[in-house]
């Protein structure tokens, strides 16, 4: 019997007249990869923002490991074990790749108010950063400046930073955004490895990726979950076909 790690109930958020999240309830279970799909404007990124604490919902409740986190700011959620990656690459430009990851590591070992010892001489810190970089295939690129990386490598670093905080739950916002096939395959392999040991909430446009990875899929339309279930059941769900693909069509197209 799997445990629920994240429980969202009756979440609502409107911007002016636009309903971005509409009475949304869903659960993420320990160890699963739960994918959220939906057409553009379905409120996927708004949902991630509410889960990570960048915006607060108008109504509803978010429980993480049975703790109410609905109104907690991002840094506190990070300490509880929620990490996110960004759809639009969000890194510390001007710093080295390894410094980016080391910052994520030191954020959660609780000793950031150290004013005197050089951070770059801290072997443990460096080692965990290097480990996280290895995990996403960025070994050898540690001392490159962030702005000199390719787009694909930026996406890999996005994931490495989220991983380096040692999260219990990973929120991945379109990790494949803007990637070519080859680069995309790389990320896919990383995610396949990752899903074996992490609980992941994945937002992704690429249907091949979603169906290759997901244990469970929730379909979001206009901020509402219209269906939730195994990839197989989603593939054959009438409502999903209608909402997502129009009346005629096939999810694999």
């Amino acid at each position: 019997m799997r445990q629920t790690i994240l429980s969202i109930s009756n979440l609502s958020k409107t911007f002016g007249g636009v309903v971005a999240t509409d009475d949304l309830s869903l659960d993420v279970e320990q160890g699963e990869l739960h994918a959220i799909i939906g057409p553009n404007g379905a409120g996927k990124t708004t949902l991630i923002a509410q889960l990570s604490g960048e915006i607060f919902p108008d109504n509803g409740r978010i429980l993480f490991q049975n703790k109410n986190i609905t109104m907690l700011p991002p840094f506190k959620r990070s300490h509880l074990g929620i990490a996110r990656s960004f759809q639009i690459t969000s890194l510390m430009q001007g710093m080295d790749v390894i410094d980016n990851v080391a910052l994520a590591t030191q954020a959660n070992d609780g000793h950031a108010y150290k004013f005197w010892k050089p951070a770059r001489d801290d072997r443990d810190l460096r080692q965990s950063a290097i480990d996280a970089l290895k995990e996403v295939g960025l070994e050898g690129r540690e001392f490159e400046k962030v702005q000199n990386l390719s787009h694909g490598e930026h996406r890999q670093l996005e994931i490495a930073m989220a991983l380096a905080t040692q999260p219990h739950l990973l929120l991945l916002d379109e990790p494949m955004a803007g990637m070519g096939t080859e680069e995309g395959d790389k990320i896919l392999k990383i995610l396949q490895k990752l899903k074996k040991r992490k609980t992941i909430l994945l937002i992704e446009h690429d249907m091949d990726v979603v169906f290759a990875l997901a244990d469970r899929i929730t379909v979001l339309v206009y901020g509402r979950a219209i269906a939730s279930g195994s990839p197989q059941s989603i593939k054959t769900d009438e409502r999903v076909r209608e909402a997502y693909l129009g009346t005629e069509g096939d999810l694999n197209c």
Partner: peptide, 29 residues
């Protein structure tokens, strides 16, 4: 020099570069 090379200094540099991400990875910037 020492402050800027310390863990604290790294957080300050990071916050200058990308405060939003720093909050997201767990810093009360």
């Amino acid at each position: 020099k020492r402050i800027m090379e310390s863990r604290f200094g790294m957080v300050i540099s990071g916050s200058k570069s990308n405060e939003r991400r720093m909050q997201s990875i767990g810093y009360n910037t």
